[in-house]
């Protein structure tokens, strides 16, 4: 493997720490940055520093925010009986874009996955139980991804919530809009059948 002078090498290795970035992409990014005007590069560096300094996790829902509690948690017009549990902060943005949900959120920051060293105590779950026990919550919607780990985490959460007498629901997963049943793989199709609803 070709090694570059130490500061280039360090930059490449820094990029490689990001998810989904291998050495090849890291190298491309590093050289791209080195070829930028100096100010542009400084702008990027500064925005990383700023974000890191100013962004904190919301003490209520766990979302990333620059105010605590975050904007959503401080919005009193929302439906306080609903909490939607998501896997990652980015998922909130996706839910918000639908314009169909007006309750509050809770971010787990991952799902339970013992093979990756993530146990039940390593995700943001205790505070969810506190929230449910201290507030008048009627329904918790589990919007975690439909992977094996997501399903198991959802089952685990619903078990923990059982004593509180709240409704626990799971969002339906299925065929993407605009796609054809014929070309939908069986896993997705099976999910769609599982999540079907009565229309008559």
């Amino acid at each position: 493997m070709i090694r570059y002078t130490s500061s280039i090498e360090k930059l490449i290795e820094s990029f490689m720490k990001l998810p989904g970035i291998g050495r090849k992409t890291a190298k491309r990014l590093a050289f791209h940055i080195l070829e930028m005007p100096k100010e542009k590069a400084e702008e990027i560096a500064q925005s990383i520093l700023d974000a890191r300094k100013n962004i904190i996790t919301c003490s209520v829902c766990g979302d990333l925010t620059d105010t605590d509690p975050c904007r959503i948690c401080s919005d009193k017009r929302r439906d306080s009986a609903l909490i939607c549990v998501v896997q990652e902060p980015g998922d909130i943005m996706a839910m918000e874009r639908t314009g169909q949900y007006f309750g509050y959120y809770h971010v787990l920051h991952g799902v339970i996955s013992p093979m990756d060293g993530i146990g039940p105590n390593d995700i943001n779950l205790k505070s969810l139980l506190t929230r449910v026990s201290e507030n008048d919550i009627k329904e918790v919607i589990l919007a975690v991804n439909p992977t094996v780990e997501g399903e198991a985490t959802a089952m685990y959460i619903s078990k923990l919530l059982a004593p509180f007498g709240v409704t626990v629901s799971r969002i339906a997963h299925g065929i993407p809009v605009g796609s054809d049943i014929e070309y939908t793989d069986e896993v997705t199709l099976a999910k769609a059948i599982e999540g079907r609803r009565v229309i008559r």
Partner: peptide
């Protein structure tokens, strides 16, 4: 794989046991 990793994970705790029950149901 998840269950064997969980069984091998260090400390036994009530959370771990509850989670294993969940995995068992699944």
């Amino acid at each position: 794989k998840q269950k064997s990793s969980c069984l091998k994970a260090d400390a036994d705790s009530s959370e771990k046991e509850t989670y294993i029950h969940v995995l068992n149901d699944y």
